[in-house]
Amino acid sequence: MIRIAIVGFGTVGQGFAELLERKKEEIRKKIGEFKVVAIADSKSSISGEFSIDEAIKIKRIEGRLRDDRKADELIDEVDFDILAEATHTRLDGGNGLNYIKKALKKGSHVITSNKGPLVSEFKGLMNLAERNSVKLMYEATVGGAMPTIKLIKRYLAFCEIESVRGILNGTCNYILSRMEEEGLPYEQILNEAQELGIAEADPTYDVEGVDAAAKLIIIANTIGVDAKFEDVERVGIRKITPEAFKVAKEKGYTIRLIAEVSKETLRVSPRLVPLSHPLAIKGTMNAAMFKTDTAGNIFVAGRGAGKEETASAMLSDLYDIYVSN
């Protein structure tokens, strides 16, 4: 019996729980019996006898879970094999970092959707997992449903990855591709994106390239480039004008926010992308191009955010933990 604890019960945590419930038959067939033994958010938790549906219902109605026991106590006191950590990203690691460390030290695997802990202590966490003979999986931190981390670690295991160039922020890509199509100014499209819920009320984290840079750091460390968030040369999209798209188009280009890592480069910046290039994708999509020594160029694209998409990436980590052994 695989015992799963979920910490962080907002959109992503709930999405993961719902997907476990909905796909339980297939999951059982592929990796065996499992059970969610505990769920916690920042101030409350539920453990012992409960169902996933019940936990989601309580959380939605009361804004909290049944018991007063907090996440860190729960991690100490309840036995589980896997911690699914889905708290909000804070670049200094936040509480999530603490939860992940506790779980790894206890000898349980961790699946996280939270960029913060990996951005702040990638190497330390990987070493901690290795010392405790467990796995720390983080597919959901980058590119949502788009296969990225396991693509590098599995399919490209013996490739030297010379560079990765990607569109890692759906909000920026939505804004830029709408500016391209409509010829409207940045502010106007930003307002539209905010109304649609694609951009936050404070869009800084997305439009200044912070989110993309955090994801780039995770990719960089995964391909063996030892890099920190402060090392990323970062330029946002606020200064892009509608005229920029017009003149770029005359030369066959459009503009996208590209995150790039190679031996010499670590940057997030608006770039000219040929209209026929696979990275010239539209809408909230994410995409990435891997340049390798033996496999040539590999291109992937997919939905970079969303409740189900992120949960599906976490589920693929769950599968990987039990099947790749």
Partner: peptide, 12 residues
């Protein structure tokens, strides 16, 4: 001045 560079294969 904001300079936007190309993403072309062998450049930069």
């Amino acid at each position: 001045i904001t300079m936007i560079e190309p993403v072309n294969e062998d450049l930069v």
